[in-house]
């Protein structure tokens, strides 16, 4: 399946948050470790609510966690 034109910085942000594990992040946003891994790898696009929850965990605005990489407009 083609990947959506959305990049994310979750791996970096987990590292900066003291090597937070995928399981720990998953627990904080109500998701399984596998789903966090899928989001991180670009295999699953989370809902807007989940994206905000992830950004909230890292204390960042959503556009610092997820970036649109497709054509603009």
């Amino acid at each position: 399946m083609a990947r959506p034109p959305i990049a994310n910085q979750i791996r970096t942000l987990r590292f900066l948050a003291g090597e937070m594990t995928q399981a720990e992040l998953g627990q904080r946003i109500g998701m399984t470790r596998q789903t966090v891994a899928a989001i991180e790898a670009g295999k699953y696009s989370p809902t807007l609510e989940a994206a905000f929850r992830i950004a909230h965990v890292f204390g960042k605005p959503i556009d610092e966690v997820f970036q649109w990489t497709g054509e603009s407009g």
Partner: peptide, 11 residues
């Protein structure tokens, strides 16, 4: 442990 995880939005 995995079995006890509730289905999330992806599931």
């Amino acid at each position: 442990r995995e079995r006890q995880d509730r289905a999330d939005e992806r599931d």
